[in-house]
Each structure stands twice: as C-alpha cells, then as structure tokens.
Computed example of a mutant assay.
Amino acid sequence: MEVLLRLSALLVVLLVGTGLRVSGILDATRTDRLNAVAYYVALPALIFVSTYDQAIGELLSLELVGGLLVVFFTTAGIAWFVHRNKADSGRQGVAIVQSYHSNLGYLGLPLVAATFADPVTAIASVILGVVTLVQVPLTIVVLSTANGADAELAEELRGLAVNPVLVSLLVGLAIGSLGITFPGTAVVGLDAIGSLALPLALLCVGASLDVDLPSIDYGATGSVVAVKIVAMPVLAWVAFSALAVDTATFAASVVMLGTPTAVSTYVFAAQLEGDEEFASLNVFTTTLASIVTLFVLITLIT
C-alpha cells in the first residue's frame, strides 16, 4: 500500500505540472528554469550524497556493467525489429530510441532514493552514469541516420564530459574511494536539495506534455510502451537473476531499467528532425503507464 500511495503521489505531481502548463503558470521560460534547477542542482546533489561515502569498488562490478549492456542492446535490437518497417522515417527513429532510452535521472534515481535504502540508491547512481554514456550517443546516431539529419556527435560526446550528472557521480565516487571526510552539515544541506529532484522533475515532465488525441497512432505508441516498460524490465529481471548479483544491485537495475521514456528524447527528436508530436505522446504515455508497471516491479522486489 505504501508503494502504491507513493507512486500515486508521483502521478498527482505529474498532472499538476500539466495543469500548470495549461493554465499558463508554467510557460516555456519558467519550465526551462525549473528544469535547469532540477538538472544542474537537485539531481547532482542527490547523486553526490548517494555516492560520497562509497568506494567505487563496492558499487561497480563486471556483472553490473555486463548486465546493463546486455539488457540495453537487446532492448535496442528488439526496438529496431519491431519498428523497422515504419514508412515514416521521422516516426521510425523516434519509436526505436524511445523504446530503450530510459528516464534514469529525472524519475529513476529519485524514485529509487525515495523507495529503497542508501546502498540501492548508490548503485542506481552508477547505473545512471553507465547507461547515460551508452544511450545518448546511440540515440543521436539512430535519429540522425533515420532522418538524414546532421548531428555533431563529437560535440555531444564532449558535452558528456561536463554533464552535471556524470561530474557529480565521478566526484562522489572519487571522495568515497579516497576516504576523504566530507563535512556533515554540507551533506545534510545537499541531502535536502537532492530530495527536491523528484518533485521538480515530475513538474517539468508534466509541463512538457502536450498531446493531440486525434493524431494518435495507437499501434506505434502501444509498441513503444510494450518494449520500454514491459520488455526492458523483464529482460533486466532475467539477466540479473542469471548473474546472481546481490539484492541491492538487482533492485536498482530492474527499477532503473523499468523507468519510462526520457523527456530528453523529445528534445533530440526536435533537434534531429524526428516527429516531435509523436515523441511527446510517447513520453506522456510511457510515464503514465509506468506508474502501474513500476508499482508491480517494486512490489515484487520488496
């Protein structure tokens, strides 16, 4: 019941964000500012607090990295197979990337932090870093190839080097691995800031959703939902069960890979000539449907 109430609260905050957009309170400029606070302040604070007292050897393992890569590329392969015959290249590329590109930062990590103990959150932070390094370049390649759009992949990769999520992860792991003592008052402050990551992210996601119901392609959207929030977490469950990892690694991996399509895929679609409306719809649909699937996953794990 506690998990259901928590996920229901997430849905409420998501819909509040949509309502604030419709009412004009959260216009594009304010949403961008709120998004910046979540991405550059709250989320890095959450990641740092989760990892600053953990040595990298305690969190990163061959089983974890191997399992993540197997699940990720298997899901990407399934997505290509399912959507390969779409006549509309703008929708084809979007459908493929939105079937594997997970909302690890805005929803995954904050949700894990709010639901599980600290060791699970620490591993989830590492998962965020590892998968981000893979899914962002692949998404750029898929969209630019499908749509014939120019993409500065090298520039995007350079951007990853200064990505606040990855930087905070590396700094936290470095401090933990070196055994550096970090001031307790600073940790308390950062923890408070990090707790804002989930509500801020949900407001931003809700404010970015704009769906035109008459134009919905139910088959295509249904396929994205099925691959992203059903097939991918099932693959994660099977893979990490076979790898016999510890409980914390299993829980973090399955929940993180069971998150909905990332909002950033809408941005990539807009930049690389994909179908923006279709991308927005899939973010909305996978996010709403994931309330149910994440409840099932968390209930089974706990």
Score class of each variant (00 low, 15 high):
Val22Lys: 14
Tyr40Asp: 13
Ile127Ala: 09
Leu20Phe: 04
Phe116Tyr: 12
Phe72Tyr: 11
Asp88Met: 13
Leu62Cys: 05
Gly90Met: 11
Arg84Cys: 12
Ile96Ala: 06
Ala113Val: 04
Phe73Thr: 05
Gly19His: 06
Ile127Trp: 02
Val82His: 01
Thr29Phe: 12
Pro44Cys: 06
Pro44Ser: 06
Pro119Ala: 00
Ala38Met: 08
Gly66Glu: 05
Ser23Leu: 13
Ile25Val: 15
Val37Cys: 01
Gly77Cys: 07
Val94Tyr: 08
Leu69Asp: 03
Ala76Met: 13
Tyr39Glu: 09
Leu60Thr: 02
Val94Cys: 05
Ser102Gln: 14
Arg84Gln: 12
Tyr106Pro: 03
Ser50Asp: 06
Gly17Val: 01
Asn35Ile: 00
Val126Ala: 12
Trp80Glu: 13
Ala36Ser: 08
Glu63Ser: 15
Val41Asn: 07
Ala45Met: 05
Trp80Ser: 11
Val94Ala: 07
His83Leu: 12
Ala95Thr: 06
Val126Phe: 12
Glu63Lys: 14
Asn103Ala: 03
Ala36Pro: 00
Ala87Ile: 14
Leu59Phe: 03
Glu63His: 11
Phe72Pro: 00
Arg84Lys: 12
Leu68Met: 10
Ser89Ile: 13
Ala76Thr: 11
Leu62Thr: 12
Tyr52Cys: 08
Thr31Asn: 09
Val70Ile: 09
Gly24His: 00
Gly67Glu: 07
Gln54His: 15
Tyr52Glu: 11
Ile127Gly: 08
Arg91Tyr: 07
Pro110His: 02
Leu26Ile: 02
Val22Ser: 11
Ser99His: 05
Ala95Gly: 02
Ser125Ala: 15
Ser102Phe: 15
Tyr39Lys: 06
Leu26Glu: 01
Val120Met: 03
Ile127Thr: 08
Leu62Val: 14
Gly77Glu: 09
Leu43His: 07
Ile96Cys: 09
Thr51Phe: 08
Lys86Thr: 13
Pro44Lys: 02
Thr29Ala: 14
Asp118Glu: 15
Ser23Val: 10
Ser125Leu: 05
Ala117Lys: 06
Pro44Asn: 06
Tyr100Gln: 07
Gly17Gln: 01
Ala76Val: 12
Leu59Ser: 04
Ala122Lys: 03
Ile123Tyr: 08
Tyr106Ser: 10
Asp27Ile: 01
Val71Phe: 01
Leu20Asn: 00
Leu43Asp: 06
Lys86Arg: 15
Asn35Glu: 08
Phe116Val: 03
Ser102Val: 15
Ser125His: 04
Tyr39Leu: 12
Phe116Leu: 07
Ser99Cys: 05
Ile25Trp: 10
Pro110Gln: 01
Gly57His: 06
Asp88Gln: 10
Leu109Met: 01
Gly66Val: 11
Leu107Phe: 02
Val37Lys: 00
Leu69Asn: 03
Ser61Tyr: 01
Gly66Cys: 10
Ile78Asp: 01
Arg21Ala: 05
Ser99Glu: 05
Ile47Asn: 07
Tyr39Gly: 05
Val71Thr: 07
Leu107Met: 10
Gly108Asp: 00
Ile56Phe: 15
Ala117Pro: 06
Ala36Cys: 00
Gly19Ala: 10
Leu68Pro: 06
Phe73Met: 04
Ile25Ser: 10
Leu60Gly: 05
Tyr106Ala: 09
Phe48Leu: 08
Ala42Ile: 04
Leu68Tyr: 07
Arg91Ala: 13
Thr29Asn: 11
Ser102Asp: 09
